[in-house]
Simulated scan of single mutants.
Amino acid sequence: MPTGVPIGDVRERLFDAADRLLLRDGPSALTSRAVTDEAGIAKGVLHRHFEDFDGFLANFVLDRAHRMDERAAALREAAGTGTVTDNLATAMTAVFGSVAVAIVALVTFRDGLRARLRETWPAGVPVLTDAVEMIGDYLAAERDLGRLAPGAEPQALAPMLVGAAHLLFADRTGTAPTEAAVRGAVESVVGGVLV
């Protein structure tokens, strides 16, 4: 690439390239060369914006985790509308049908990335812990609206839902789970507390 040519938002181009690589080829395919080639920029550009490749990956993971805020807001707004099962199934498919499952594999795959994330992320795996919080908040809102039993425990149900969804979507190379399978998993977790 010629020097002096503007290339737009470098971080976002690199993050989008990492998304594509993760979804297409998995975490082992992520190298600084692969990311910069996919983004169509010189390798040195990545290192001008990030201390090292694990620093890039940590920023990428945190950026994608923070995107959960939009999904969380949409799910909270859905409280009291539609059915609880449909709202949860839609949210699970949106989260785990995205790059989230690949991010979990990436964090598991790279020791240096996990160490870097621990500097700013207290516990758990980004994206999964955000999903648990998002689902817990939504379930609490539905309980407050009387659509879940008063004794329902959102903070106990949320990790079960996220775990079930993660298992359904974990094989990124296989066929995505059907809508019926996702709904079935949701119903198996929350069916007993629906009002």
Rank of each mutant, 00 (worst) to 15 (best):
H47G: 10
L62R: 08
T31N: 05
R64Y: 01
V45K: 15
L62G: 04
F56K: 02
G40A: 08
M68W: 00
A42V: 13
F60M: 01
R48I: 09
G55M: 02
I41W: 12
D52C: 00
A39F: 13
L57I: 08
D69Y: 05
D54T: 12
D54C: 06
G44P: 09
G44L: 01
F60C: 00
E38A: 14
A72L: 08
K43L: 14
H66P: 06
A34H: 07
N59A: 12
R33N: 12
F60I: 02
A34Q: 03
R71W: 10
F50P: 00
H47K: 10
L30Q: 02
R71D: 08
H49M: 04
H66A: 08
A58M: 00
R67N: 05
A58Q: 01
F56M: 01
E51W: 02
A65E: 06
R48F: 11
E51Y: 04
A58H: 01
I41Y: 13
A58F: 00
T36W: 09
R33A: 15
I41A: 10
D69C: 02
G55R: 02
H66D: 13
A39N: 12
R67G: 08
V45F: 12
M68R: 04
D63A: 08
R33D: 14
L30P: 08
V61D: 03
K43N: 15
D54Q: 10
G55H: 03
E51G: 05
F56A: 00
A42L: 15
M68Y: 07
R64D: 01
L57N: 03
V35D: 06
I41R: 13
E51S: 09
D63C: 07
R33G: 12
V45P: 10
A42Q: 14
A58K: 02
A34Y: 06
D69R: 09
E70S: 07
E38L: 06
F60T: 02
D54A: 15
F60W: 06
R67C: 05
S32V: 07
V45G: 09
A34M: 06
F50H: 15
A39D: 12
L57M: 11
T31W: 00
T31H: 05
I41V: 15
F50K: 00
D63K: 07
S32A: 15
D69W: 07
S32M: 08
D54L: 04
G40R: 07
D63F: 10
R71E: 09
L30D: 03
D69P: 02
L46T: 09
E51I: 01
L62A: 05
H47Y: 15
T31M: 03
D69N: 09
D63L: 07
R48Q: 13
G44N: 11
D69S: 11
